[in-house]
Nucleic acid binder design. Structure first.
Length: 823
DNA sequence: ATCGAGTATAA
DNA sequence: GTTGCTACTCGAT
C-alpha cells in the first residue's frame, strides 16, 4: 500500500529492541496519520591506526548497565569519510537504542578511541539520512495497522521517499493564551491560578474557532465564553478542546516559557494528566515558568512558540526593538494594542466585576494575534525547515549558528563528510581568547556633499569565501604552499587550496547561486502578477543562512570553527575595498566614505556613464560570485565631525537624501533607541531641511524647538528615554539612570529581567541624573536643561557645525525669548 | 581631564 | 554568528 503524506511532527520510541521513528502528519487527502519506520542508531569511531579485529572483539562483548536495558553494540561496518579534508578509516557502530550512543561512545573514548557524530539527535539523523524534508510530500510504502494505540491511524512503513518539494498547502492551527492571577504583579505559579484561557483557531477551510474558558460567574454576553466551576475544570477543558479540535499546529507567544509550563504546573497540582499527545503522552515542558529558556512539546502536535522564532531569527527584519506581542503584532499585522490594565485583573476578579468582560475580550484578542502572527510567519518557518531539513519545531528554536551548522550537517551526507566534534569546555575557553581584525572604515571629512554615488559589494563576505575557497578543509592544503595566488593578502602565513573547491565554500556557493536564481524567478513572477510570498520567504531564508557562514566560522562553539578562515575573509574584504578605493581615485573620482563593503564617491563633473564604466571595470577583475553594484545616486549627503575633533569625520554617522526625497539616516541619535523622541524628531527635521538645501529654515526650526523645550511645552511621551537592562541588577557596578529606574520598578513589584527595556524621564531637581530619573507616570516637571544639553543639542549641533553655525547661535534667541516669556 | 562601564548601532 | 583601531553618555576619580 502506498500513501502520499506530509510529515509535520516527529518522535521516536524503542520497542522490543527496535527503534522506531514516528512521523505525525496528514495524508495528501487531509487525513491525520502517524507513519512509523524502524531505524538504527549509530555513530563513528576512527580506526586509522587501530587493530580492527581486536576492537570489534571488545565491542561485541561490551555491555553497559542502564536503568531499563543495558546498552550494547549490535553491529558495525567499515567506512571511509572525509574529516576536515582528510580521508579517515572509520567504524560505523550501531547500537541497540538511541540513548546507548552517548553511553557506548563515552566508554570508547575512555579507551582512547576518537568518536564522531555521537551527539547527533536520532530523529535528525533519520531525516537527513532518509533525505526527508518535513512539511513536504513524501510517499510511504507499507501497511495500515488496525490497532495502533494512538489517537490517529498508524501506518508501518517499509519505504519512504520524497516525492515533491512543495510544502503542505493547508494547516489547522490553534493559538492559545492564558491570563493568570497576579496581585502586585507577582507571578507565582504555585499560589496563583489560571483565571482564563483563550483559543483562536482556524481550520483548513479557513473557518474560525473562538473560545475563552474562565471559572468566575459574571454577567456577560460573550458567545465564545465558557464558564466552568473551577480552575481544575478549566484545565480539563483545555485538554479536551485540544483533543477535540485536532490542530496540526498549536501556537503561542512565549508559550515555551510561560503559558504551557504554567498550565502544566497547575495541572500537576490537581493531578490532572495532560495526555494530549497523539500517542497519549503528556505535554512536556522543560524549565519552569520563570522566564528562563525552556521548551514545551506535545507529541504529534507541532508546537510553535512564535516569540522564539522572532527573537532568534526574524527580529532582525523588524524595526521594533521590543519583542512584546503588542509591538511585534503592530508591525507585522498592523494591529493596535487592546487597552486593558492587566494589573487590575486580580482585583476585578476578586470582586467579580463586569469588567471581566474586557479581560476575556483581551484574552481572546491575544490568542487571535498569536494565531495571525503564526500564519504570517509560517511561510518563513516552513522555508527554513526545508532548507535546513529538520523539524519546524527545532528550526524555529535555533539561533543562526545552529541553523548554519545543521544545514552543513545535511549537506555533509552528500559529500561523504564526517562532522567534526563540538569543542569541549577547555577548547571553548581557548577559542574565546582568539580575536581577529574586522572591516575597514574610511574616515570621512565632515561636510555637506552633492551628487554622491554609492557602490557596494553584493554579499561581500559570502562571495569572498566562495571565490577564494575559504574553509577549514582548504586551509593550508599540501598542494598550494608555493602557489602565489592562494596566499591571503596581509596574512602572509595563510593560504587556501587553489586546485580543488572544498566542502564549505562549495555548499555556500550553491546557496548563493540558488538565491540568485530565486531572485530571477521572483522578478518574473512579479511581472506576471503572481504571488511571490513563498519565493520571497525562501530567498530571505537562504540569504540569512549564507550571511551567517562568516560569523559561524569565527564562532567558538562551531564544529567547523576556523578562525583563520574568518580572519582571511575580513583580510580579503579589506584588500578589495582598499583596492577599489584606489582605483576609483585613479580614474578621477573623489572618494568620501567607505565602510566594509561600500564605497561613496562624488560624481563631480563626470557623468553617470563614467560611474558605470568604473563599475564594469572593477567587476571585470573580480573572481567568482563577487560583484560590485551601483547601489544608488544621492543628490545630497552630510557627514558630521567626530566629537571634539572638528576636522575628523565621525565614522558610521551620516545622512543621505534620495532623488525621491527619501532620507537614509545612519548611526545618528535618530535611529537609536536610547535617545528621546524629541531629540530624534528635531534631528530628523533638521537633517531633512539641510539635505533639502533649506539651511535657514533648519536653523529657525531648531531655534523654535529649543524655545519650546525650555518653556516646558514638550509633551511627556517625547521625553521618554528607553534603555535595556542587560544583566541582573545586582551585577551592575555603576548605577546609571536606567539601573536606578529598574530598582524603582522592582520596588513597585514589576519584573525586571535581563532583556527588559525600561523607560524614564529626567526631571528637575538637584543631584545626580540617576536621582532625577522618574517613571513616565510620576513626572511633574521635566528638566529642560538636561534635555537641551544632553539630548537635543548633541543631536543637532554636529549637523549645524558642518554648516558653520555654533551652539551659541542656536541657543541665543531661545535664552532671550525664553527668559522673556518666563519672567 | 580622563577612564571604565554600559548601551547601542553598522556592516 | 562576527568585529568595529565605532561613538556616545554617565559616574567615578
Amino acid at each position: 500500500m502506498k500513501i502520499n503524506f506530509y510529515p509535520l511532527d516527529f518522535d521516536y520510541q524503542v520497542k522490543d529492541g527496535q527503534t522506531y521513528v514516528y512521523l505525525f502528519g496528514r495524508t495528501e487527502q487531509g487525513e491525520r496519520l502517524c507513519v512509523v519506520q524502524a531505524y538504527k542508531p549509530y555513530f563513528y569511531v576512527q580506526i586509522n591506526d587501530i587493530d580492527k579485529e581486536e576492537l570489534t572483539k571488545k565491542l561485541s562483548k561490551l555491555l553497559i548497565e542502564n536503568k531499563l536495558e543495558p546498552a550494547k553494540v549490535t553491529s558495525w561496518e567499515e567506512v571511509e569519510k572525509e574529516l576536515l579534508g582528510k580521508i579517515q578509516k572509520l567504524l560505523k557502530i550501531y547500537v541497540n537504542y538511541p540513548k546507548a550512543v552517548p553511553l557506548i561512545s563515552r566508554e570508547l573514548s575512555s579507551w582512547g578511541i576518537e568518536c564522531y557524530e555521537k551527539d547527533i539527535l536520532f530523529v535528525h539523523r533519520y531525516l537527513r539520512d532518509q533525505k526527508i524534508l518535513p512539511m513536504t510530500l513524501v510517499q510511504v510504502e507499507g501497511e495500515l495497522q488496525k490497532e495502533g494505540g494512538l489517537r490517529v491511524p498508524l501506518f508501518i512503513a517499509t519505504k519512504i521517499e520524497q516525492v515533491s518539494h512543495e510544502s503542505i498547502p493547508k494547516l489547522k492551527m490553534l493559538g492559545i493564551d492564558i491570563e493568570t492571577y497576579a496581585k502586585d504583579k507577582i507571578i507565582d505559579l504555585e499560589k496563583n491560578p489560571i483565571l482564563m484561557l483563550a483559543f483562536y483557531g482556524v481550520d483548513e477551510k479557513g473557518e474560525e474557532f473562538r473560545k475563552v474558558i474562565t471559572w468566575k460567574r459574571f454577567t456577560h454576553k460573550l458567545d465564545y465564553l465558557e464558564v466552568v466551576s473551577d480552575e481544575a475544570e478549566l484545565i480539563n477543558r483545555f485538554k479536551q478542546v485540544i483533543i477535540d479540535y485536532q490542530p496540526d499546529i498549536l501556537t503561542g507567544y512565549f508559550s515555551d516559557g510561560f503559558d504551557l509550563p504554567y498550565i502544566k504546573h497547575r495541572a500537576d497540582k490537581y493531578h490532572i494528566e495532560l495526555d494530549i499527545g497523539l500517542d497519549y503522552s503528556s505535554l512536556q515542558t522543560g524549565g519552569k515558568a520563570d522566564f528562563k529558556e525552556g521548551e514545551a512539546s506535545i507529541t504529534g502536535i507541532l508546537h510553535l512558540d512564535v516569540c522564539k522564532f522572532i527573537r532568534y531569527i526574524f527580529g532582525k527584519n523588524l524595526k521594533t526593538d521590543s519583542y512584546t506581542l503588542d509591538a511585534v503584532a503592530e508591525e507585522l499585522i498592523g494591529h493596535k494594542k487592546h487597552v486593558v490594565n492587566l494589573d487590575n485583573l486580580a482585583h476585578v476578579w476578586d470582586d467579580g466585576l463586569k469588567e471581566l468582560n474586557d479581560y476575556c475580550e483581551y484574552n481572546l484578542h491575544d490568542a487571535h494575534l498569536v494565531l495571525q502572527l503564526c500564519q504570517k510567519l509560517l511561510y518563513d518557518m516552513i522555508e527554513f525547515t526545508k532548507i535546513v531539513g529538520l523539524p519546524t519545531y527545532d528550526v524555529i528554536r535555533m539561533r543562526f549558528s545552529r541553523l548554519v551548522e545543521n544545514y552543513i550537517l545535511k549537506r555533509a551526507i552528500e559529500y561523504n563528510v564526517l562532522a567534526p566534534n563540538k569543542p569541549v569546555h577547555e577548547e571553548v575557553d581557548q577559542r574565546m581568547e582568539e580575536t581577529f581584525q574586522g572591516a575597514f572604515v574610511y574616515e570621512p571629512i565632515p561636510g555637506l556633499y552633492k551628487d554622491i554615488i554609492v557602490f557596494d559589494f553584493r554579499s561581500l563576505y559570502p562571495s569572498i569565501i566562495t571565490a577564494h575557497n575559504i574553509g577549514p578543509e582548504s586551509f593550508h592544503c599540501d598542494c598550494c604552499k608555493n602557489v602565489k595566488e592562494a596566499r591571503v593578502p596581509t596574512q602572509d602565513e595563510y593560504w587556501f587550496c587553489n586546485k580543488e573547491k572544498k566542502f564549505i565554500p562549495t555548499v555556500l556557493e550553491q546557496l548563493i547561486s540558488i538565491r540568485a536564481d530565486l531572485k530571477k524567478q521572483i522578478k518574473e513572477a512579479k511581472a506576471r502578477k503572481e504571488n511571490t510570498t513563498i519565493l520571497e520567504a525562501r530567498s530571505w531564508g537562504i540569504k540569512t543562512l549564507a550571511n551567517s557562514f562568516y560569523g559561524y566560522l569565527g564562532f567558538f562553539g562551531a564544529r567547523w570553527y576556523c578562525i583563520e578562515c574568518a580572519r582571511s575573509t575580513t583580510a580579503y574584504a579589506r584588500n578589495y575595498i582598499l583596492t577599489t578605493i584606489s582605483k576609483a581615485e585613479e580614474v578621477g573620482f573623489k572618494v568620501i566614505y567607505s565602510d566594509t563593503d561600500s564605497l561613496f564617491v562624488l560624481l563631480g563633473e563626470q557623468g553617470m556613464e563614467k560611474a558605470l564604466k568604473f563599475q564594469k571595470e572593477i567587476n571585470s577583475h573580480l573572481p567568482g560570485q563577487m560583484e560590485l553594484e551601483l547601489e544608488s545616486y544621492y543628490p545630497r549627503g552630510i557627514f558630521v565631525a567626530a566629537k571634539g575633533a572638528s576636522d575628523k569625520g565621525a565614522k558610521k554617522r551620516y545622512a543621505l537624501i534620495s532623488k525621491e526625497g527619501k532620507l537614509k539616516i545612519t548611526g545618528f541619535e535618530m535611529v537609536r533607541r536610547n535617545s528621546s523622541l524629541i531629540a530624534k524628531e528635531v534631528q530628523e527635521q533638521v537633517l531633512r531641511m539641510v539635505l533639502e538645501d533649506k539651511t535657514k529654515e533648519a536653523f529657525d526650526y531648531a531655534q523654535k524647538m529649543i524655545v519650546e523645550l525650555k518653556a516646558g511645552k514638550i509633551s511627556l511621551d517625547k521625553l521618554i528615554i528607553k534603555t535595556q537592562i542587560t544583566k541582573e541588577l545586582k551585577e551592575y557596578s555603576s548605577i546609571a539612570p536606567h539601573v536606578a529606574i529598574a530598582w524603582q520598578m522592582i520596588k513597585k513589584g514589576e519584573r525586571i529581567a535581563p532583556g527588559s527595556v525600561v523607560q524614564y524621564v529626567i526631571c528637575k531637581g538637584s543631584g545626580l541624573v540617576r536621582d532625577r530619573a522618574k517613571l513616565p507616570t510620576e513626572v511633574k516637571d521635566y528638566d529642560a536643561e538636561y534635555y537641551l544639553n544632553n539630548q537635543v543639542l548633541p543631536a543637532i549641533s554636529s549637523i549645524f557645525a558642518v554648516l558653520g553655525y555654533s551652539e551659541e547661535e542656536l541657543t541665543k534667541r531661545s535664552s532671550q525669548i525664553g527668559l522673556g516669556k518666563f519672567f
